[in-house]
Every structure is written in C-alpha cells, then in structure tokens.
Design a protein around this nucleic acid. Structure first.
Lengths: 352, 352
DNA sequence: TTGAAAGCGCTAACAA
DNA sequence: TTGTTAGCGCTTTCAA
C-alpha cells in the first residue's frame, strides 16, 4: 500500500459518491457530526476509511479564510533556551490542530515577511520571541477587530498594548542577586543581556533593585555588556580579569554567557566559587553537569511555550478577547548549586 | 497605516481593476514577467504597490497543487545539535521561497501525521531527522513518480533507496577512536548512541573498526548503552565507576552524554583527562567552554541543514531526479582539546 | 436532515 | 500580448 500516492488524492466528492450522499453532507458529517443523522454519519465514516480521504487544507483555508497555522519567530534556535520552548509550542499547537511555521527574519524589517505570511493567508497568528525586532514596524496592537493576532514573549516590558507572556524577569533577577548578597557578597558585578530599544533590560533592573535595597554600589566598570552568547561571557571575563579591584560575585543574564565567563576565568586560574561566585539565569540542560554545577534562576521554559501558544490560539479562536494587552507572568525559581558560595575572608568585611 | 487589516485583503482582482487589465495578466506579470509587455508590467507593479497586494497562498496552493512548504521532523529540538540544523533549514528554505512546518510526532506511527500533512496538501516534501521512526511505515522509496519527496538525515545507514544526507559517522567514529589509540590507550570503552531497528549504530561500528584494526579488545562490559542524553552519560558513569577493571579512555556517541559522564565521574573524584580520556561527537557550542574543553568530532551541522534542504527542494522542483536513493556524505573533523591525554603510566603497558 | 449551487482567489488553456 | 473562461476542493447559505 502506498498511502501517499499523490497521483489521485481522494476528494470530498469521491467520499460523497462512495457514501451515496452529497459533498455538503460529507462536509457536515466531518465538521458538525451532530447535524447529520446517525446512519449517514456511519456511511460517511466508512467511505472516508475506504477512500483514505484526508481534507485538502488549501481548499479549506481558501474557503474559510484561515490557515490553521501559526507563525513562530525565534531569534536563534541555536540557543538551547529557545529550542525547548519551540518543542512546547509545536506540541501545544498540534494538540489543537494547528501547524507551526518557523520564521527566520531576513533583514530587520518584520513587515516584509509578516506580510508575506499573513496577507498571504499562510498563518493565522504570530508568536514573537524576539524583542529585538523593531516593534515600531509591527501592526497596531490588537484589540481592534481585524488585526493580526499576536503574542509576544521576551524579557522586556513592551508598552503599546501588545499581548505579553513572560517570566518574572525583574523579580527573578532581584532574587538571584539577593542570593549573592545573602551569602555575604558586597562587591557584585553584572553580565548583562542584550539591550534593545535603549531600554535597560528587565534583568538588569532587577539586579539594580537588589543592590539598591542592600545599599550596595554597582559601579560602571562592574557592568559588563553582553548578548547571551558564550563569546559575551568570554569578553566579560577578559575585562573582569583586567580589573584592579574585582567584584567577588557576578550575576549573569543567562547561563550560556555565564559558562563562557567561567571557562575564560579558569584559564586565568580564577576559580569558581573560590575566587568568584556566579549566578546565572535559565537553568539550561547542562547547568547541573557543568563544573561547578551552576546556581541559576530556572525559567519555566516548557510552560512558557505552552502558555504563549495557548494564549495565541485562544485569541485566534475568539475565546480570549484581548481588548487591552494581556499580561501573563510565569514565576522563576532559584536553583542553588555549586557556583555560589560565601566570599573568602580576604575580601573587605561582608557586612549585611 | 495598518498593513495587516484582514478586513479587506486586496485580491488579484483589485490589482487588475486598478491597473486596467485582467486578473490573468496580473498573474502573468507576477509569475512570468517576460510574457507581458514592459508597459503592462509597470502598470501592474504600480497597482500592486498601491493596493498592498500579496498573493493568497491558499488559493495558489489549491490551484497549483503545491504548498510551497516543507515539513521537518526532528526528534527533539531540545538537543542543541538539532537546533542549529533547524536554523539552517529555515534559512535555506526561505531563500527558495518555501515555508518550514515543524512536526512533532504523536505516537510512533508516522503514517498518521504524514497523511495529515501531505494528502492535506500542507507540505510538498519531508525532511526527516529522526531515524527512530518506524521506516517500515514510510511510503515507498522515491524514484517512481507521484511519491512523496523525502530526504532522510541521520546516523544510520538505511537501506531501501531513501535519499540520505549524512555525515561520515562510521569513518569519523573510527578517527575519534584512533585518536585515543594514538595517545597510547589500549583499554577503551564506548558510550553508545541510541540503537534503533536492531542495527548497530554507525558510530559504534566505526569504534569497532578502529579497535579491531589495532587488535584491541572491546569487552561487553565496556560498552555502555545510551541515547544521547545527559542522563545516559550519568548512568554510564555509574556503571563505569562500579567496574573493577576500568578502561582508561572512552569514546562517546555525542557531546551531551559525554558531559553527563564527565560530571558524574568528577563527583566520584575521577578526573578527566588524568584518570580517563574522553572523546565526544558533534562539537556543540559549549564544547570549548566545558572543563576540560572537549575533544570531539565536529559535525558540519549548519551545512547538514542546508544540504538536506537544498536536496529536498531540488527533488520537489524536479531539478534532481532521485531514481535511486541519493547518498550525500559530509565530512567531520577531529577537534583536539583538553579531554584527551596519554594514559598514566600506572596502567598496563601502553604498547602501540 | 439533506442537496443544489455559489464562490473563496488563483492559474492555465484557449481564443482573440 | 492580452482577455475570457473554467475549475482546483471545500463550506455554506438557501430550499426542499
């Protein structure tokens, strides 16, 4: 049996003929079975089975003006953080009968490819995991009828009424930093995430919250610019090492850059947590298998993928009506492992 | 300007009216401009611009019986190895005007969702990165007209005439193992990848090739079953540690399980490369930032993604005619870092 | 509860 | 070179 012989895909007409009913009835039997007699329903079911019929989505999309497909834009799936999310998105969408189309952005003007997807009826909604897109180019925020269903997920607060699903980045970053403070650190640096739109990153703000509350300074040269990559961590380590007066602890915007930082430090004989305590963000898979095992804020990645998708599909279905921008916040969790410890006595008094 | 107002998406008719030509002419102007007069072409271009027209893919798909979309099945994108490939796939497909639909498999019977995608006209071809699918359920191998365009990429040799793009797993595994032998190791274990279809994995075969050529034994209790996960590495380490007579070196089927192995060993005070040399496979991002930095076979991941995609699209286009199964093999490269060294003198004579 | 008929937006065969 | 026409496979009024 060759189930995919595209030579002669059975149509709804074929089923109708076989069942001795009209095409309309077959259509009804399949989509609204309660509006068809028991008997007919069975005959149709048999005919479907016999012919091996499956619906032609293109025809259905054309007729119903919906693609049953969502578009997902992810900055780079190279990052293990996003690949888990993607997994969850596909699973949730599939469970609700939607396909998932993956976009990579060509150029920075999203309108170009967004149009290609949406006005071309290829997708019914957009899941945007990339805050670095020029949001100014995005369509008006939802709420008014006839506008693109859209859910944003990122670590920035975006104004403008967009629907947002995010983790509690700011509070979580504060929690992570407080962990270092509670261990007795007073000289704490920060490896930043990518800064977009000139706004300070939420995680950076959380770091600053904690430092301010504790009355600790966070001088400029202890702030290391970054972009979530290994390389950013390595660069930060180079700067860190060159410092005359080094912090005893560091809060990193994510695990991957943290790993770059630690690797480079070790090359210079700076050991973690002996010489520097580091706390990261994400709890990527290998966090517990690194040396030292990474203390980090665990992000509910899988849940993030599911919730963003569910939210988007609810909007598409009309179940949720996003009159104003939705804002859903998922909690993170501090996972204490081996990369943090109290500072060594040699450092200046650790006064709370 | 609200570029996505779905209320009134302009159709080809709108453009035709605006340009003062027929719909057919607009269609031609867009798809075969050379068959239209210079003047008309310009008028159409203007009208397209003015109306903001983009093609309705659903209508086009219905008419042309092609979706301009490919389906990608990936075991789990959770694995950093696959996420890079996915990136490449999306990029290559987009460059050729194709969308990428992501499949997750529900159950192990691919026919179910394959039908849902293909006979429903949602995708024109399939990229399969998952050898663990029951290939017996797959459609007949391509070659005959009217059969599903399909390209497989995995680390198994599949018989049956499927089109295959793979890396030189067997030779690469042999190379990796030989590296250990050249360092003077004679007692070498192997952490296996997932075994499917009862066939020994290509990488396992390569390992055995090298051992046989060197006249070295590879006893059963030095073969650790695995499935590419961190956990598999951890389990292997537990068994390794319990061994009375341990190997001095290990060849791992991939980096991630290698990391699990190393992490667990360290907990028991077994240091790499002092007590055990380990070589991995893939060269994932953080390989150089682990401690010790991982010696590993680098896989041309990005290229793998591009080539598989290009091959599939060529088949769909009819550029390539896969009369018999294509077989494209990409070369891997040994990256020597810190996780391998010569065995310590205490071990029994290291005779080449 | 069912069928007939129209039409979603596009392209391709055929005519002009 | 361009226009007319038909029809891809489906859903959905409207009538029976």
């Amino acid at each position: 049996m060759a189930p995919f012989a595209s030579s002669k895909t059975p149509t709804i007409q074929d089923v109708a003929r076989k069942a001795g009913v009209s095409a309309a009835t077959v259509s009804r039997a399949l989509s609204t079975p309660e509006r068809v007699s028991e008997q007919t329903r069975e005959r149709v079911a048999e005919a479907v089975e016999a012919t091996g019929y499956t619906i032609n989505q293109a025809a259905r999309s054309l007729r119903m003006r919906e693609a049953r497909t969502i578009l997902v834009a992810i900055p780079n799936m190279n990052n293990p953080f996003y690949s888990t999310i993607m997994d969850a998105v596909v699973e949730e969408a599939a469970a609700r009968g939607y396909g998932v189309l993956v976009a990579n952005r060509l150029g920075n003007d999203p309108t170009q490819w967004l149009r290609d997807y949406f006005s071309s009826n290829r997708a019914d909604g957009l899941l945007l995991f990339d805050a670095s897109l020029e949001l100014g180019h995005l369509p008006e925020p939802p709420g008014q009828k006839g506008i693109l269903p859209l859910v944003l997920s990122c670590d920035e607060i975006i104004d403008g009424g967009f629907n947002l699903v995010m983790t509690d980045n700011r509070a979580a970053a504060e929690r992570a930093t407080r962990h270092l403070i509670e261990l007795g650190h007073t000289r704490i640096g920060h490896l930043q995430g990518r800064v977009v739109h000139q706004f300070p990153n939420e995680r950076t703000l959380g770091f600053q919250d904690a430092m301010r509350k504790a009355g600790l300074p966070f001088p400029e040269d202890w702030q290391f610019p970054g972009d979530h990559t290994l390389e950013a961590g390595i660069r930060a380590a180079d700067r860190f090492i060159a410092l005359e007066n080094r912090p005893t602890a560091l809060f990193c915007a994510n695990d991957e850059s943290m790993i770059g930082f630690l690797a480079r430090c070790r090359e210079y004989g700076i050991e973690c947590p002996r010489d520097v305590s580091v706390v990261g963000f994400d709890d990527i898979n290998i966090a517990s298998c690194y040396w030292p095992p990474l203390t980090t804020m665990r992000q509910p990645r899988y849940q993030l993928g599911r919730v963003t998708t569910a939210t988007l599909l609810d909007i598409i279905d009309g179940t949720t009506n996003p009159d104003s921008g939705l804002r859903i916040v998922l909690p993170s969790e501090l996972i204490v492992r081996g990369s943090t410890a109290s500072p060594r006595p040699r450092s200046r008094a650790a006064n709370a």
